[in-house]
Design a binder for these strands. Structure first.
Lengths: 306, 306
DNA sequence: TTAATGCACAACTTGGGGTTGTGTGCTTTC
DNA sequence: GAAAGCACACAACCCCAAGTTGTGCATTAA
């Protein structure tokens, strides 16, 4: 591809060869090989150089795009000036939504999103500089954040109950936490040791709910499928989670009150992080930060305070 | 890259090797080579397979994107189901604008834009199936379009006079063609034998203008530079042409009337072109087609009729 | 005609990238 | 806690892809 673009830019094989520091014959072979692989003639050879065929013209922008993508790929792991690297807790989480919004607002800032296992890994990665920031809800209970890590709450996400159409509570417009007692709430795929597990453990302990965190995670589709078809099962879902649901099998999202359980998202970063994108990200989040009033909401005691 | 993604998808080197029909050692070598080139560790090797490092996670979406782009590149020259391939007369022409608008309206339709030398090449390419459609203004004078080529006028683009701030006509809000007589109009880079050359030849013959089509084309920047600085020179420019002009050196765009010279853009395509995108393109253009009223405009006699 | 230019073909060489064979470290199992 | 199993790395070898040099052919310019 690089050779193809070099020939286009140079206008002839010989100059492209000089640019690439190889012989004209090598360029000729490379182009011939590419043409053979594609089963298409890319250049018309003339006595004054090489001109693109129609197929070559159509191919050219794709070739340039490929080189651009390759360059970005290399840059993504290049120490020094790599893209802003942010950890989110799950690809469907509200944090992902925040980062998508940030990307829309600042498309000029290169961005890579990763997902780390737990808060300890995230803090270690932030301190080592492997990532620039992390969206998390919590400090490790009993172990405060290190001195060099800053944090700020950026979003409180209310949990809603998700039920199928045949569920006993499907008709409710709103539910109190007390009304959930005795109903089976299914949260598969929650890995023990993560902050999600801790969150739901606290929720159960506080309000006496029945949460079944067992079972492997067969993916969000399977979960929604089961919820839709099983009258005895419901699940929790963040209010910002967008359902990708081909045929909406009558799923109901029901707000929960008295109190509203909220999942707090906070941004963590190293105080002396030099990445130029960090300031922009923090400013963006500060400008768009929204949370429920603390009154009437519930969150575990060990989350990062406002 | 393919191997990297295969390992990620398989979760371990051995299964990826099976997927790729090579040995585990070859996969190990490829990944080691990639890691060496990038000077970064992409996987942590465990006794149960390979897990992505943070760098690997950041790299992954770029790798997938690269494979997608590569696939699209190959598809762009694949006979059978390749992207819709449309010829435009210049990258700054109104036809390019129309295709950009079409792409915005129908981003799902893969599109490649090429630029052919003249109408004869374009017609031959349409007939052979090398391209699907072409934006042109004209039939070759004296030689009507072949039976199997259809055409429809889609846009009449009025020409405007472009002058620098010191030009004698710079203050005019509008000009008649008669007022242009005696002023030097400079149109560099027009290649003899093209329909542009024929257009301006006719314009000169009809109204006795002074058009200098000589001189090589040093690019639009150089042209605008000269126009801005030379009081004795002006040039024609399509009303839809967007100037990319860092500091607007006081350039003036002046409408021309009595009559308004318009450059008609027509779409040509083969009657039996089977590409599914063609119907969409024609429908889109039919819906957005706009032209000046024929009254008060001028175009050469040999253009494609409305 | 002659010279110059520019790409293709042929013969040769080399090292990247594949193979087989083996070693090492971590899990799992009883 | 020894043994078996699994998964990846290293070493040696082998071969062809991809480079090189040398040359030929077609087109253009003088």
């Amino acid at each position: 591809m690089r050779t193809f673009v070099a020939v286009v830019d140079a206008g002839q094989f010989q100059d492209a060869a000089a640019d690439l520091s190889i012989t004209q014959q090598a360029v000729s072979k490379r182009i011939a090989g590419l043409e053979k692989d594609l089963a298409v003639r890319l250049f018309t050879r003339t006595a004054r150089g090489a001109r693109l065929t129609i197929d070559g013209q159509a191919f050219l922008p794709h070739a340039r795009e490929l080189l651009r993508v390759a360059e970005r790929a290399v840059a993504s792991v290049l120490p020094g000036s790599r893209p802003l690297r942010v950890d989110v807790i799950a690809s469907r989480s509200a944090a992902s939504g925040l980062m998508r919004a940030f990307h829309r607002a600042h498309p000029e800032i290169e961005l890579d999103v990763v997902m780390l296992f737990d808060i300890e890994t995230a803090v270690a990665a932030i301190r080592s500089g492997a990532i620039d920031a992390s969206f998390r809800a919590v400090a490790v209970p009993g172990r405060p954040l290190p001195e060099d890590i800053e944090s700020v709450r950026v979003l409180d996400e209310a949990l809603q109950l998700l039920t199928g159409p045949a569920h006993a509570l499907a008709g409710a417009r709103s539910l109190t936490v007390a009304q959930l007692a005795g109903h089976r709430i299914w949260m598969p795929g929650i890995v023990p040791g993560t902050e999600w597990a801790a969150y739901y453990d606290d929720l159960v302990a506080e309000f006496g709910l029945t949460i079944e965190a067992t079972g492997p995670n067969f993916g969000s589709d399977a979960l929604l499928d089961t919820i839709a078809d099983t009258p005895a099962l419901a699940t929790f879902m963040g209010e910002q989670t967008r359902l990708v649901w081909p045929a909406d099998h009558g799923l109901r999202r029901i707000p929960v009150t008295d109190p509203t359980p909220v999942y707090p998202h906070a941004l963590l970063w190293r105080r002396d992080n030099p990445h130029p994108g960090m300031a922009t990200l923090r400013a963006h989040l500060a400008a768009t930060a929204a949370g429920h009033d603390a009154a009437g909401t519930w969150a575990p005691g060990w989350v990062i305070p406002r």
